[in-house]
Amino acid sequence: MDPSDQEPSEPRQPRNFQDVLRYAIEAGNNAQTQRTEPDISPLDPERRQFLEQAIQSLTVDTVRILSAAIETLKSLSKDTLAPETYQDALDEIADHVDNIDAANDFVKLGGFTIIDSCLHSQHPGIRWRIADIIAQCTQNNPFCQNHALNLRLLEQLITMVDKDPDEQCKTKAFFAISNIVRDSAVGLKEFMRLNGFSAVKKALVSNTDKLRMKASFFFNSVVSNQPTVTWDVVSMGFPELLVSQLQLPPGPSHEFNASSLLLLVQNSKEALATCKKPDLKLVEILNRIIDDQKTDDTYSELVESCKQLLVLVR
Protein backbone atom coordinates (compact mmCIF):
# COMPACT_ATOMS: atom_id res chain seq x y z
CA MET A 1 0.00 0.00 0.00
CA ASP A 2 1.09 3.54 -0.73
CA PRO A 3 2.39 4.91 2.65
CA SER A 4 0.77 8.26 1.96
CA ASP A 5 -2.63 6.60 2.22
CA GLN A 6 -2.05 5.25 5.71
CA GLU A 7 -4.05 7.89 7.52
CA PRO A 8 -5.85 7.41 10.83
CA SER A 9 -9.56 6.86 10.40
CA GLU A 10 -12.57 5.73 12.36
CA PRO A 11 -13.17 1.96 12.15
CA ARG A 12 -15.84 1.08 9.61
CA GLN A 13 -19.03 -0.66 10.65
CA PRO A 14 -18.93 -4.44 10.09
CA ARG A 15 -20.61 -5.38 6.81
CA ASN A 16 -20.65 -9.16 6.92
CA PHE A 17 -20.37 -12.14 9.23
CA GLN A 18 -16.58 -12.24 8.89
CA ASP A 19 -16.38 -8.64 10.10
CA VAL A 20 -18.59 -9.39 13.10
CA LEU A 21 -16.56 -12.48 13.96
CA ARG A 22 -13.30 -10.56 13.72
CA TYR A 23 -14.62 -7.70 15.84
CA ALA A 24 -16.01 -10.11 18.41
CA ILE A 25 -12.69 -11.95 18.66
CA GLU A 26 -10.81 -8.68 19.03
CA ALA A 27 -13.22 -7.50 21.71
CA GLY A 28 -12.88 -10.83 23.50
CA ASN A 29 -9.10 -10.74 23.35
CA ASN A 30 -9.03 -7.21 24.72
CA ALA A 31 -11.31 -8.19 27.54
CA GLN A 32 -9.27 -11.33 28.28
CA THR A 33 -6.09 -9.30 28.73
CA GLN A 34 -7.83 -7.25 31.40
CA ARG A 35 -8.90 -10.14 33.61
CA THR A 36 -7.33 -13.29 35.05
CA GLU A 37 -10.47 -15.11 36.22
CA PRO A 38 -13.43 -16.40 34.18
CA ASP A 39 -16.17 -13.81 33.76
CA ILE A 40 -19.69 -15.24 33.67
CA SER A 41 -21.49 -12.00 34.47
CA PRO A 42 -24.06 -10.55 32.02
CA LEU A 43 -22.84 -8.34 29.18
CA ASP A 44 -22.24 -4.76 30.26
CA PRO A 45 -24.25 -2.11 28.32
CA GLU A 46 -21.31 -1.03 26.17
CA ARG A 47 -20.50 -4.56 24.97
CA ARG A 48 -24.16 -5.33 24.45
CA GLN A 49 -24.57 -2.20 22.32
CA PHE A 50 -21.48 -3.14 20.27
CA LEU A 51 -22.83 -6.60 19.47
CA GLU A 52 -26.30 -5.28 18.67
CA GLN A 53 -24.88 -2.71 16.25
CA ALA A 54 -22.63 -5.31 14.66
CA ILE A 55 -25.54 -7.67 14.06
CA GLN A 56 -27.78 -4.87 12.78
CA SER A 57 -25.09 -3.85 10.32
CA LEU A 58 -25.43 -7.21 8.60
CA THR A 59 -28.79 -6.11 7.31
CA VAL A 60 -27.22 -3.26 5.31
CA ASP A 61 -28.09 -3.78 1.66
CA THR A 62 -24.90 -2.69 -0.07
CA VAL A 63 -26.30 -3.30 -3.55
CA ARG A 64 -29.32 -1.09 -2.82
CA ILE A 65 -27.10 1.68 -1.44
CA LEU A 66 -24.75 1.57 -4.44
CA SER A 67 -27.66 1.46 -6.90
CA ALA A 68 -29.30 4.49 -5.32
CA ALA A 69 -26.07 6.47 -5.36
CA ILE A 70 -25.44 5.57 -9.01
CA GLU A 71 -28.97 6.70 -9.95
CA THR A 72 -28.38 10.03 -8.23
CA LEU A 73 -25.10 10.53 -10.07
CA LYS A 74 -26.64 9.74 -13.46
CA SER A 75 -28.26 13.19 -13.37
CA LEU A 76 -24.87 14.89 -12.96
CA SER A 77 -24.54 15.43 -16.70
CA LYS A 78 -27.56 17.75 -16.43
CA ASP A 79 -26.30 19.19 -13.10
CA THR A 80 -29.86 19.37 -11.79
CA LEU A 81 -29.00 18.83 -8.11
CA ALA A 82 -26.83 20.69 -5.62
CA PRO A 83 -23.12 19.71 -5.69
CA GLU A 84 -23.43 18.52 -2.09
CA THR A 85 -26.02 15.94 -3.14
CA TYR A 86 -23.64 14.42 -5.67
CA GLN A 87 -20.79 14.54 -3.19
CA ASP A 88 -22.90 12.73 -0.59
CA ALA A 89 -23.69 10.03 -3.16
CA LEU A 90 -19.99 9.62 -3.91
CA ASP A 91 -19.24 9.42 -0.19
CA GLU A 92 -21.82 6.63 0.12
CA ILE A 93 -20.05 4.71 -2.63
CA ALA A 94 -16.62 5.33 -1.12
CA ASP A 95 -17.80 3.93 2.21
CA HIS A 96 -18.28 0.52 0.56
CA VAL A 97 -15.98 -0.01 -2.40
CA ASP A 98 -12.86 -0.51 -0.30
CA ASN A 99 -14.29 -4.04 -0.07
CA ILE A 100 -13.46 -6.02 -3.23
CA ASP A 101 -16.89 -7.65 -3.48
CA ALA A 102 -18.60 -4.28 -3.19
CA ALA A 103 -16.21 -2.77 -5.74
CA ASN A 104 -17.07 -5.52 -8.20
CA ASP A 105 -20.78 -5.01 -7.50
CA PHE A 106 -20.33 -1.31 -8.19
CA VAL A 107 -18.94 -2.12 -11.64
CA LYS A 108 -21.63 -4.71 -12.39
CA LEU A 109 -24.33 -2.22 -11.41
CA GLY A 110 -23.03 0.21 -14.02
CA GLY A 111 -21.09 2.38 -11.61
CA PHE A 112 -18.29 3.07 -14.06
CA THR A 113 -20.78 4.70 -16.44
CA ILE A 114 -20.98 7.76 -14.18
CA ILE A 115 -17.22 8.24 -14.01
CA ASP A 116 -16.82 10.37 -17.12
CA SER A 117 -19.33 13.03 -16.06
CA CYS A 118 -17.80 13.11 -12.57
CA LEU A 119 -14.25 13.52 -13.86
CA HIS A 120 -15.39 16.44 -16.02
CA SER A 121 -17.48 18.13 -13.33
CA GLN A 122 -16.85 21.80 -12.65
CA HIS A 123 -16.81 21.00 -8.93
CA PRO A 124 -13.43 19.78 -7.57
CA GLY A 125 -15.20 18.02 -4.68
CA ILE A 126 -16.84 15.73 -7.22
CA ARG A 127 -13.70 15.23 -9.31
CA TRP A 128 -11.44 14.16 -6.46
CA ARG A 129 -14.09 11.92 -4.93
CA ILE A 130 -14.60 9.94 -8.13
CA ALA A 131 -10.83 9.64 -8.60
CA ASP A 132 -10.60 8.25 -5.07
CA ILE A 133 -13.37 5.74 -5.84
CA ILE A 134 -11.51 4.59 -8.96
CA ALA A 135 -8.41 4.15 -6.81
CA GLN A 136 -10.26 2.13 -4.18
CA CYS A 137 -11.96 -0.09 -6.76
CA THR A 138 -8.78 -0.88 -8.65
CA GLN A 139 -6.44 -1.47 -5.73
CA ASN A 140 -5.27 -5.12 -5.96
CA ASN A 141 -8.38 -5.88 -8.04
CA PRO A 142 -7.73 -7.13 -11.61
CA PHE A 143 -11.45 -7.18 -12.42
CA CYS A 144 -11.81 -3.44 -11.81
CA GLN A 145 -8.38 -2.69 -13.28
CA ASN A 146 -9.42 -4.28 -16.56
CA HIS A 147 -12.68 -2.32 -16.64
CA ALA A 148 -10.79 0.91 -16.00
CA LEU A 149 -8.39 0.12 -18.83
CA ASN A 150 -11.21 -0.83 -21.21
CA LEU A 151 -12.88 2.51 -20.52
CA ARG A 152 -9.56 4.32 -21.17
CA LEU A 153 -9.65 5.97 -17.78
CA LEU A 154 -5.86 6.19 -17.65
CA GLU A 155 -5.83 8.89 -20.31
CA GLN A 156 -8.32 11.04 -18.41
CA LEU A 157 -6.51 10.54 -15.11
CA ILE A 158 -3.11 11.42 -16.60
CA THR A 159 -4.64 14.60 -18.02
CA MET A 160 -6.10 15.33 -14.60
CA VAL A 161 -2.67 15.06 -12.96
CA ASP A 162 -1.22 17.28 -15.66
CA LYS A 163 -3.85 20.01 -15.91
CA ASP A 164 -6.39 19.98 -13.07
CA PRO A 165 -6.13 23.26 -11.11
CA ASP A 166 -7.01 21.56 -7.81
CA GLU A 167 -4.14 19.86 -5.97
CA GLN A 168 -6.36 17.34 -4.21
CA CYS A 169 -7.79 16.28 -7.57
CA LYS A 170 -4.27 15.77 -8.91
CA THR A 171 -3.28 13.73 -5.88
CA LYS A 172 -6.32 11.46 -6.00
CA ALA A 173 -5.95 11.05 -9.76
CA PHE A 174 -2.37 9.91 -9.29
CA PHE A 175 -3.53 7.50 -6.58
CA ALA A 176 -5.95 6.01 -9.11
CA ILE A 177 -3.28 5.79 -11.82
CA SER A 178 -0.95 4.01 -9.44
CA ASN A 179 -3.55 1.39 -8.52
CA ILE A 180 -4.50 0.74 -12.14
CA VAL A 181 -0.91 0.40 -13.36
CA ARG A 182 1.00 -1.29 -10.55
CA ASP A 183 1.04 -5.11 -10.82
CA SER A 184 -0.66 -4.92 -14.22
CA ALA A 185 1.45 -5.57 -17.32
CA VAL A 186 -1.39 -4.39 -19.55
CA GLY A 187 -1.86 -1.27 -17.44
CA LEU A 188 1.84 -0.41 -17.55
CA LYS A 189 1.94 -0.88 -21.32
CA GLU A 190 -1.01 1.49 -21.75
CA PHE A 191 0.52 3.95 -19.28
CA MET A 192 3.72 4.07 -21.31
CA ARG A 193 1.81 4.40 -24.58
CA LEU A 194 0.13 7.49 -23.11
CA ASN A 195 3.51 8.93 -22.08
CA GLY A 196 2.44 8.61 -18.47
CA PHE A 197 5.96 9.07 -17.10
CA SER A 198 5.76 12.73 -18.12
CA ALA A 199 3.01 13.09 -15.53
CA VAL A 200 5.25 11.33 -13.01
CA LYS A 201 8.01 13.86 -13.65
CA LYS A 202 5.65 16.74 -12.98
CA ALA A 203 4.28 15.07 -9.86
CA LEU A 204 7.77 14.50 -8.47
CA VAL A 205 8.44 18.25 -8.45
CA SER A 206 4.98 19.25 -7.22
CA ASN A 207 4.62 21.65 -4.30
CA THR A 208 2.14 19.22 -2.74
CA ASP A 209 3.84 16.80 -0.34
CA LYS A 210 1.27 14.04 -0.80
CA LEU A 211 1.48 14.15 -4.58
CA ARG A 212 5.28 14.03 -4.49
CA MET A 213 5.08 11.08 -2.10
CA LYS A 214 2.66 9.18 -4.32
CA ALA A 215 4.81 9.84 -7.38
CA SER A 216 8.03 8.72 -5.70
CA PHE A 217 6.38 5.58 -4.28
CA PHE A 218 4.82 4.71 -7.65
CA PHE A 219 8.04 5.28 -9.60
CA ASN A 220 10.05 3.19 -7.15
CA SER A 221 7.49 0.40 -7.34
CA VAL A 222 7.58 0.34 -11.14
CA VAL A 223 11.37 0.41 -11.55
CA SER A 224 11.68 -2.26 -8.83
CA ASN A 225 9.20 -4.66 -10.38
CA GLN A 226 9.42 -3.77 -14.07
CA PRO A 227 13.11 -3.22 -14.97
CA THR A 228 12.14 -3.18 -18.65
CA VAL A 229 11.16 0.48 -18.20
CA THR A 230 14.72 1.45 -17.25
CA TRP A 231 15.85 2.56 -20.70
CA ASP A 232 12.74 4.68 -21.22
CA VAL A 233 12.92 6.54 -17.90
CA VAL A 234 16.67 7.06 -18.15
CA SER A 235 16.26 8.58 -21.62
CA MET A 236 13.59 10.89 -20.18
CA GLY A 237 16.05 12.38 -17.68
CA PHE A 238 14.86 10.71 -14.49
CA PRO A 239 18.38 10.23 -13.05
CA GLU A 240 19.00 13.99 -13.16
CA LEU A 241 15.55 14.68 -11.74
CA LEU A 242 16.04 12.26 -8.84
CA VAL A 243 19.43 13.80 -8.05
CA SER A 244 17.85 17.26 -7.95
CA GLN A 245 15.20 15.97 -5.53
CA LEU A 246 17.87 14.56 -3.23
CA GLN A 247 19.30 18.07 -2.90
CA LEU A 248 16.13 19.18 -1.10
CA PRO A 249 15.77 18.90 2.71
CA PRO A 250 15.11 15.23 3.58
CA GLY A 251 11.47 14.17 3.65
CA PRO A 252 9.36 11.03 3.23
CA SER A 253 9.96 10.95 -0.55
CA HIS A 254 13.75 10.83 -0.21
CA GLU A 255 13.86 7.14 0.69
CA PHE A 256 12.03 6.17 -2.51
CA ASN A 257 13.94 8.62 -4.70
CA ALA A 258 17.31 7.32 -3.50
CA SER A 259 16.17 3.72 -3.93
CA SER A 260 14.93 4.46 -7.46
CA LEU A 261 18.18 6.18 -8.40
CA LEU A 262 20.16 3.22 -7.08
CA LEU A 263 18.10 0.80 -9.19
CA LEU A 264 18.61 2.90 -12.32
CA VAL A 265 22.36 3.11 -11.77
CA GLN A 266 22.58 -0.64 -11.15
CA ASN A 267 20.58 -1.49 -14.29
CA SER A 268 21.77 1.13 -16.77
CA LYS A 269 25.25 2.13 -17.91
CA GLU A 270 23.76 5.37 -19.20
CA ALA A 271 22.32 6.21 -15.78
CA LEU A 272 25.65 5.41 -14.13
CA ALA A 273 27.53 7.63 -16.58
CA THR A 274 25.05 10.45 -16.00
CA CYS A 275 25.36 10.21 -12.22
CA LYS A 276 29.14 10.36 -12.44
CA LYS A 277 29.06 13.75 -14.17
CA PRO A 278 30.87 16.28 -11.95
CA ASP A 279 28.29 19.02 -12.54
CA LEU A 280 25.59 16.94 -10.78
CA LYS A 281 27.70 16.90 -7.61
CA LEU A 282 26.05 13.62 -6.61
CA VAL A 283 29.01 12.45 -4.49
CA GLU A 284 28.80 15.66 -2.47
CA ILE A 285 25.01 15.29 -2.07
CA LEU A 286 25.28 11.67 -0.95
CA ASN A 287 28.03 12.41 1.56
CA ARG A 288 25.99 15.23 3.04
CA ILE A 289 22.87 13.05 3.42
CA ILE A 290 24.88 10.23 5.01
CA ASP A 291 26.60 12.62 7.43
CA ASP A 292 23.45 14.54 8.36
CA GLN A 293 21.14 11.54 8.79
CA LYS A 294 23.46 8.80 10.06
CA THR A 295 22.09 9.01 13.61
CA ASP A 296 18.42 9.35 12.64
CA ASP A 297 16.71 5.94 12.48
CA THR A 298 13.87 7.51 10.48
CA TYR A 299 16.20 7.74 7.50
CA SER A 300 18.15 4.49 7.93
CA GLU A 301 16.99 3.09 4.56
CA LEU A 302 17.75 6.39 2.86
CA VAL A 303 21.27 6.36 4.29
CA GLU A 304 21.81 2.75 3.19
CA SER A 305 20.74 3.53 -0.39
CA CYS A 306 23.04 6.56 -0.42
CA LYS A 307 25.98 4.46 0.78
CA GLN A 308 25.41 1.92 -2.00
CA LEU A 309 25.10 4.71 -4.56
CA LEU A 310 28.29 6.31 -3.32
CA VAL A 311 30.27 3.11 -3.95
CA LEU A 312 29.05 3.07 -7.57
CA VAL A 313 29.39 6.72 -8.56
CA ARG A 314 32.49 8.02 -6.79
Rank of each mutant, 00 (worst) to 15 (best):
I130P: 02
S121I: 03
N146E: 03
H123C: 11
S117M: 09
G196W: 05
V181A: 12
V181D: 06
I126S: 04
D95C: 12
V181C: 08
Q145M: 12
I93C: 05
C144Y: 03
C169D: 01
N146I: 10
I134M: 10
C169S: 10
F112N: 04
Q122S: 15
Q136T: 06
F143M: 04
Q87A: 10
G125F: 03
I158L: 13
P142T: 04
E167H: 07
A102E: 09
I134R: 11
K163E: 02
E155K: 00
L81N: 13
G125D: 08
A94K: 09
K108C: 08
L76G: 00
Q145F: 04
P83Y: 05
E155Q: 05
D164L: 13
Q139C: 00
T72I: 13
N99E: 13
P165Q: 09
V186R: 15
S75Y: 08
L154T: 00
C118E: 07
L151V: 02
G196S: 02
K172L: 05
A176D: 03
D79H: 13
S178P: 06
P165K: 05
D116F: 14
G187F: 11
F174T: 01
S117F: 01
H147C: 07
I134Y: 07
H123R: 14
E190D: 13
K74D: 02
L73M: 13
V97G: 00
G125R: 15
D132R: 14
D162M: 10
I130M: 13
F174W: 03
Q139M: 04
G125E: 02
L109E: 10
T85Y: 05
E155R: 01
I130W: 00
L188S: 10
D162T: 15
F112I: 14
M160V: 01
D183S: 14
Q122Y: 14
V186A: 15
N179C: 14
I158E: 03
P83C: 08
S117I: 04
I126A: 08
C144N: 02
P165M: 11
E71A: 04
C169Y: 01
Q139R: 11
Q145H: 04
Q156R: 12
D95L: 11
D88L: 07
C137W: 06
D162L: 06
G196H: 06
